[in-house]
Amino acid sequence: MNLKVLIIDDDAVVVFIQKKLMANNEISDSPLVFKRANPALDFIEAEENDKEFLILLDINMPGMNGWEFLNELNNKPDKHRYHVIMVTSSVEQRDKEKASQYPMVREFLEKPITNESCKKIKDIPEISHFFEKV
């Protein structure tokens, strides 16, 4: 599959839950996990150009935070390859509005994510074709 799934979150428990749910909902059996945003960015840049990325992104992280990561992506020419799902414990409307300003943000989810959240992800028009059953 040409869609790579990345989980960027510094919280191990959150990563554990999300990995489990990705697998259970057949989004990805082996999502790539990054505790920091920077290495994730390096990884993306190293990948081939035909790859697309589903990124579950936390906002509050040490080092580069979620917003800074988004800004980096925003500077790239091939933005359509990035499908970002914001996953945050914040319940503030301000953050939600801020996120919607970025063109590659597809969804804004509050922690914890659930099976319901996963279904929403699979229904996102830009990426739904990756999950169609043959």
């Binding site: 428990v13 839950i17 259970n24 414990s89 922690k111 914890p112 099976n115």
Partner: peptide, 21 residues
Amino acid sequence: SHVVRAPLARIMGLIDLLRNN
């Protein structure tokens, strides 16, 4: 809200995991 909600979200996520799987 972030600090408080982070552990709570984790607990909620874990419980959900237990129940459904």
